[in-house]
């Protein structure tokens, strides 16, 4: 089935089977490997992308359902000139990652969360990234990153 949607601001058309998952389609068919597949059981959040501005787990989303949707992956956050999104910059500055495997999903969840909760407390920030697992950091610096990123997003707005 040929489906058309907007990926990171650009229209794409891609041939998918009914059972193809969005995570596999962006990685294998569209070559965007920033979206990671960790658990493949919708637990870990490494595969989080935005569909129409909301964070979802792409390993539990059928690509065929996306006709006409707007999809943003981690590759779509930085500006075309390479300037990082404020949330990416915050993860960099606050040392919000170690191995980095969970980071794309973590950042995508954090951007959606901060857009709805621009001034979170540490507890709110931790709850906001509940759907994302990190097996390195213990989350302390990730929570700091989310708060700093939210503050930077307020300024950019």
């Amino acid at each position: 089935m040929l489906i058309q949607f907007v990926l990171n601001g650009k229209p794409v058309a891609v041939d998918v089977a009914a059972y193809d998952l969005l995570a596999d389609v962006v990685r294998e068919k569209l070559g965007l490997t920033g979206t990671h597949i960790g658990c493949d059981t919708s637990q870990c959040g490494a595969c989080v992308v935005h569909i129409d501005g909301r964070s979802v787990k792409s390993c539990s989303t059928l690509a065929v359902t996306l006709e006409g949707a707007k999809v943003t992956t981690i590759e779509g956050l930085a500006s075309p000139s390479g300037q990082l999104h404020p949330m990416q910059q915050a993860f960099h500055e606050q040392h919000g990652l170690q191995c980095g495997f969970c980071t794309p999903g973590m950042v995508m969840s954090a951007v959606d969360f901060a857009s709805r909760n621009p001034n979170p407390t540490p507890a709110e920030a931790a709850a906001g990234i509940e759907g994302n697992f990190c097996r390195c950091t213990g989350y302390q610096n990730i929570v700091k990153s989310v708060i700093a990123g939210a503050a930077a997003m307020r300024v950019v707005k």
């Binding site: 919708s42 959040g45 979802v56 509940e130 759907g131």
Partner: peptide
């Protein structure tokens, strides 16, 4: 219910 991503779908 669930996490933010579950609640979004």
């Amino acid at each position: 219910i669930g996490d933010a991503q579950v609640r979004n779908k």
